[in-house]
Every structure is written in C-alpha cells, then in structure tokens.
Design a protein around this nucleic acid. Sequence first.
DNA 1: GCTGGAATTATTCAAGCGTATAATAAAACC
DNA 2: GGTTTTATTATACGCTTGAATAATTCCAGC
Lengths: 215, 215
Amino acid sequence: MTVNRRSYHRASEAERREDLIAATLDCIAEFGIQGATVRQIATRAGVTGGLIRHYFAGKDQMLQAAYRKVMTGMTETAIAAAIEGETAKARLRRFIVANVTPPVTDPRTLSLWAAFISHIQIDPSFAAVHRENYLAFLEALETLLTAFFREENRAVSPQECRRYAVALNALVDGLWLEGTLAADMFADRELAENALHSVEALLRLEPGGLSAEER
Amino acid sequence: MTVNRRSYHRASEAERREDLIAATLDCIAEFGIQGATVRQIATRAGVTGGLIRHYFAGKDQMLQAAYRKVMTGMTETAIAAAIEGETAKARLRRFIVANVTPPVTDPRTLSLWAAFISHIQIDPSFAAVHRENYLAFLEALETLLTAFFREENRAVSPQECRRYAVALNALVDGLWLEGTLAADMFADRELAENALHSVEALLRLEPGGLSAEER
DNA sequence: GCTGGAATTATTCAAGCGTATAATAAAACC
DNA sequence: GGTTTTATTATACGCTTGAATAATTCCAGC
C-alpha cells in the first residue's frame, strides 16, 4: 500500500543550505543551543529532519557552519561601513561606530555569539572558527590604524600599533557587550560617542581628534 | 523482595546545595549546557537524579543558582584584590590587573559566563542576574575612580566619571575575553601591562601615571 | 533505643534526541 | 517520453532526557 506523501519543492543546493543555517540560527536564538534540535530546525526550515543529513555530515557540522555565518556577518558589516570613509580618519571612525551601533549591537546576534563562544572549549573545531575571525578583526583594525597614523604623519612602530589594535578591539568588544546587554541604560548616540572619545584617549589624540566631523 | 540499595551520607542542606551547584558548573564547563543533564550532574555530585528535584524546583532553577555563583565569584575576586591597595591609585591598578589575570582569566569561567549570557534572551530571570552583577561591577569601578580622582586633586563630574567607568568596564571585559580566548597570543604580563597603559590613556593621565609602582 | 518524618535512592514513564534506511517525488537526461 | 538520478519524505531504532513516584535509609527528639 502506498503512503500519503507530501509533495515538495526542490531547491538549489546553495539556497537550501542557507535556509538550513538560517533556521539553525533562529532556533538557537529563540530556544538556546539546547533547543536547536534537528527536528526544530527542520520544522523551521520547512523540511523534514532527514534532509539535514543530506546537506551536512551531522548536526555538529551544521552548527559550525552556522557559527561561521554569524561571525563573518558581524565583521563584514563593520568592514563594509569602514570602506565608505574618504580619509583614513573617517574610515577608522566609521569602523568604531559601526561596531557599537545596530545592526551589530543586536540581542539576537549576541545570543548566538555567546552560545558559540561557550562551545569553544568543548569542540576544538569551534575554536578554529573563533581564531580566524579574531585575527581578521585584529588585522582590519591594525590596517585602519596604520593608515590613520600615516595620514596624521605620526610615527608608530608596528609593535605599538598592535598594542593599540588589541586595546581598541577590547574596548569595542566590551562596549558592544554593554550596549547590547544593557541597551536601556544608554541614550541613543551615547555609546557611539563614548566609543569615539575613548578611542581618541587611547590613541592619545587631542579631544575631538577623531570624533569631530571634518568639513 | 528488597532491592540492593546504596547507603548514603546525609549532608546539611547548605553543603548539598553547594555540591549540586558545583557539579552543575563542572558539567556545563565540560560538556556545554546541553551536556549538563540531570543525570550527569547527579553523577558528578555523587547522588542520584531524583535528589535534584528535592533541592530545586527544577533544573532551570538550579542553573540560575549556578549562574549567580559564577558571577559573584568573578566580581568578588577582583574586588578582593582591590581592597588590599593602600592608595586609591593602587586599588584601581590592582582591580584592573586582577580582571585580566588568572584566576579571573580562566577558560572554564569564560565558558560558563558565555553559556549563561546566551540564555539571557531566552529566560528573563537570567537577565536579572546579569543586570545585578553588571551594575555592581560598574559601581565598584565608579567608586574606585571617584576616590582616585579625589586623591589626584582632579575635579571630575559624576557624569564624566560614569562615562569613564563604562569605558573602563568595556576595556576590561574585552581584554578579559581576548586574554582568555587567545591566551597563547600574549606573553606573560603583556595583557596586564596593556590594560594599565590603556587605562592611563583612557583617563588622560601622563604615561606611567597608573602603571608605575610608587615607592 | 524507639520512632516518625525527612532525605535519598531506585525505578518508571512519556517525550524527545540524533541518526539510519527505505520509499517516493521531482528534476535531469538522452 | 521513458529512464536514470537524486533530493526529499516517512518511518524506525536505540538512547537519553526531565520528571514523577514508591521504597528505603538515615537522623533527631523523645
């Protein structure tokens, strides 16, 4: 006897993988990593559970792909904001501000980020993803800083430049955390302004040396 | 017929709760929040699963108690380090350094912290725990800063002081993250020194104004 | 030394987990 | 337009989950 079987749409490999990853992130954000079960994810993506094993070797590999997606999304948003600046100073400023402003400061993104961070110690393959993105972020900052110092005719050794990048990275990450976890405590542009003033101070610029708009 | 039944030790309520919470944290750190199952936790604590329901209304409540434990542990370590300083400057310095030095920078603690952070959006009662501790940390910083500025005979408005506290909190959190997640990238005292130099810059002190040991 | 009540264990239960496999619908091919 | 390929569904399996319950052991107060 034949079974009543759903008809279905046959999607391209690329978009189906996208859908599955998106559904995975939805589930993690909504129910936590414990709630991101194969069945929930499949339901959210509008498919049945078995399909996941057709696109990924297992649930873990899908989680890892999802992690990559979140991290590259965050970094790329900030980098994309930076390249629109005309001067090195403007690029640096835009980069800083982008990192403490929506859509980067977003509770959902933070949840996802934290969920994955907490799994780094458990699954070493997650550590590799983190390392990749940390280094990319650091390098982006170092590049922006080097260009900025050159523009200002200020001689800064590579070692010092790296120190600055590490500190700026910390400051930006920390403000991102604060701004996302306690958004109600800060006025609209308060965090962005604090970020700019703090970066000015960190780089030992005169007040306004970064935050002031050039004409 | 009677069953072969383990004999058991009857602990005081306080220490049994402590044991259960400690076992919970062990399991989360080792297997992630998904691996922190009632059975695993019970095994780790040397009891059977049913006992958990005798001390907590359910697994979730135990998780929340565990979260409280982690956070107060972190803040208290830093605050305890601070009070040993003789001058306000020394207290501030010790506070900063303690936050980017073991035992605060510890992969296990970071895992736990991240696991709980990722559940804030899901369970609002976790948000309350976070808020409590964030405010406590911010206030500790503000107190240290106020005393320091007074000691230096420097007039700083409360608003400005809060701005500084927010920035310092961000920097410290960020360096804590970097130092714990990429510990291999930093030499022994590198992060602590970077932290002190960065705080100096943030507060617009002259170089050495905080990091240099007074005689 | 009993004994009543609380702490703890052992066991059970339904639900849900990730994965494996076979059947089937949709597309691709010639 | 029939045939092959493959993406997708349906179903099953063995395990684990959090919780509930009943049986047992311990301890305090008498």
